[in-house]
Amino acid sequence: MRRLFTRMFSKNRPLFPYITAAGLLIAAMLAGISTGSVKVPIMDVARIIGSEAFRLPIEVQSDPMYMNIVMNIRLPRVVLAGLVGASLAIAGAAFQGLLRNPLADPYTLGVSSGASVGAVVTIFYQLSLPLAGMYTLPLLSIACAFITIILVLFFARSIDRTMKVETIILTGIIFSSFLGAVISLMIALSGEELRQIIGWLLGSVSMRGWSFVQIMLPFLLIGSCILFWNARELNAIAFGEERAKQLGVNVGSRKIAVLASSSVLTGAAVAVSGTIGFVGLVIPHLVRILWGPDHKHLLPLSVLAGAAFLILADLVARIIIEPAELPIGVITALIGAPVFAAILIRRRMGKRS
C-alpha cells in the first residue's frame, strides 16, 4: 500500500493529479446530469448511461421520462460543456506557455472575439461552404480566430519590436473591443437573425443536442493532439526563444503550430457555445499552481479540469435562478474577472519587489 501511495505521488509518475482531475470530472458529470428541475437519482443515471451509451448488460427499470431526460437532454449538454471547457482550457495553457505569461488566454488575446465575428457573419449571411455542411460555422470561426491572432501579433510587433507580452495582451484587448463593436453593428442591422445571434453571443450549451457534440469533437481531438505533440517544445520556449533555439527547437514552425491549433480549439468552442470568457485563464493558472509548469502534465490536466469546471459552471447557471437560466458566460466571468485581477496585482507586486 505504501509503495502504491509513493508511486502515485512521485514526480516521475504523477498519477495522483490525474486521478483527482478525472474523479472531479466524473463527479461533475454525474451532478450535471442528475440535477435539474426534474432530479434523476445518480444510480439511475449510471444505469441508463451504462445500458444506452456503453451497451453494458445492465437491467434498467427507470422511468422512461428519466431515460429521455438523461440521453436526449442532459447528457449531450454535459458532454458539450465538457468539450468546450477542455478546448478553452488547453488553448489558454498553450497561449500562456508560448507567450510566457499567465495573463494570456483566448479571451484577453482577442481570439474569442475573432471567432465570434466569424460565427456572427456565418449566421447573419446564412453562409454554407461547399462540402462543409454543418461544419461551415466552426470552420469560418476558426479561420477568423487564426486571422485575429496573426493580426494581434503583427500590430504588437509594429508597436514594440521586443514583443513584450503586456503589449500583446493590450493589443488583444484593443482588437477584442473593436471586434465587439463590429458584432454590435451586425446585431443592429440584423432582423430575424437578431434573437439567434444574441442568444448565441451570451454563451450557452443549452438545447444543442448530439449534433453539436459531433461538430466539436474532431476539432478538440486534432487541436489537443497537436498541442500534446508540442509539449516538450513549449517547455523549451518557456525559458526564452534564444534558449529554445540552442536546444534545437524550430521556434518559428512550433509557434505557428501552437497558434494554429489553439485557434482551432477556440474557434470550434466559440462556434458551438458562443463567447465564454476566462476559462482559458483560470484553469491553466490553477493547474500550474497545483502541479507546476511542465506542459507534458499541464496540458492534459487542463483538459480534465477545464471540462469539469465548465460542467459545474453550466450547472450553477441552470439552477441559481431556476426555472430560468443564466448565460454560462456570466458565471465564468464572475469567477474569472477577480482571478484576472489577482494575477495582475501579484505580477505588479512581484516586479516592484
Rank of each mutant, 00 (worst) to 15 (best):
Met1Ala: 10
Phe5Cys: 02
Met8Ala: 15
Pro14Met: 15
Leu15Met: 13
Gly23Leu: 09
Gly23Val: 03
Leu24Arg: 07
Ala27Glu: 03
Met29Leu: 11
Gly32Thr: 08
Ile33Lys: 09
Gly36Tyr: 12
Ser37His: 12
Val40Glu: 10
Met43Leu: 12
Val45Gln: 06
Ala46Glu: 04
Leu56Met: 14
Val60Arg: 00
Met67Arg: 13
Asn68Trp: 05
Met71Gln: 10
Asn72Val: 05
Gly82Gln: 02
Val84Phe: 01
Ala86Leu: 07
Ser87Trp: 09
Leu88Pro: 10
Ala89Glu: 10
Leu99Asn: 09
Asn101Arg: 09
Asn101Leu: 09
Leu109Thr: 13
Gly110Cys: 07
Val111Trp: 10
Val111Phe: 11
Ser116Val: 01
Ala119Lys: 00
Val120Asp: 01
Gln126His: 03
Leu129Gln: 00
Leu129Tyr: 02
Leu131Trp: 11
Ala132His: 01
Ile142Tyr: 10
Phe146Tyr: 14
Thr148Tyr: 11
Ile150Tyr: 11
Phe154Met: 14
Phe154Arg: 13
Ile159Phe: 12
Arg161Cys: 05
Thr162Gln: 14
Met163Val: 05
Lys164Ser: 13
Val165Lys: 12
Thr167Arg: 08
Thr171Gly: 03
Gly172Trp: 05
Ile173Thr: 08
Gly180Phe: 08
Ala188Tyr: 13
Ala188Glu: 09
Ser190Ala: 14
Trp200Gly: 00
Trp200Pro: 05
Trp200Asn: 03
Val205Phe: 05
Val205Asp: 04
Ser206Ala: 08
Val213Gln: 07
Gln214Val: 12
Pro218Arg: 04
Ile222Pro: 08
Leu227Gln: 11
Leu227Ala: 06
Trp229Thr: 14
Ala231Met: 11
Arg232His: 14
Asn235Leu: 12
Asn235Ala: 13
Asn235Gly: 14
Ile237Ser: 10
Glu241Tyr: 06
Glu242Cys: 01
Arg243Gln: 13
Ala244Arg: 03
Gly248Ala: 00
Val249Gly: 07
Lys255Met: 06
Val258Tyr: 06
Leu259Gln: 02
Ser261Asn: 03
Ser263Thr: 06
Leu265His: 08
Leu265Phe: 08
Ala271Asp: 04
Ser273Ile: 01
Thr275Lys: 00
Phe278Ala: 04
Phe278Glu: 07
Gly280Ser: 04
Gly280Asp: 04
Ile283Glu: 05
His285Asn: 10
His285Tyr: 06
Ile289Glu: 11
Trp291Cys: 14
Gly292Val: 12
Gly292Asn: 12
His297Glu: 09
Pro300Val: 06
Leu301Thr: 13
Leu301Asn: 09
Val303Ser: 10
Val303Trp: 11
Leu304Thr: 01
Ala305Leu: 15
Phe309Trp: 12
Leu312Gln: 13
Leu312Tyr: 14
Ala313Glu: 09
Ala313His: 11
Asp314Asn: 15
Pro323His: 03
Ile328Gly: 04
Ile328Ser: 05
Ile331His: 11
Ala337Pro: 01
Phe340Ser: 04
Phe340Ala: 04
Ala341Gly: 12
Ile343Phe: 04
Ile343Asp: 02
Leu344Ser: 05
Leu344Asp: 02
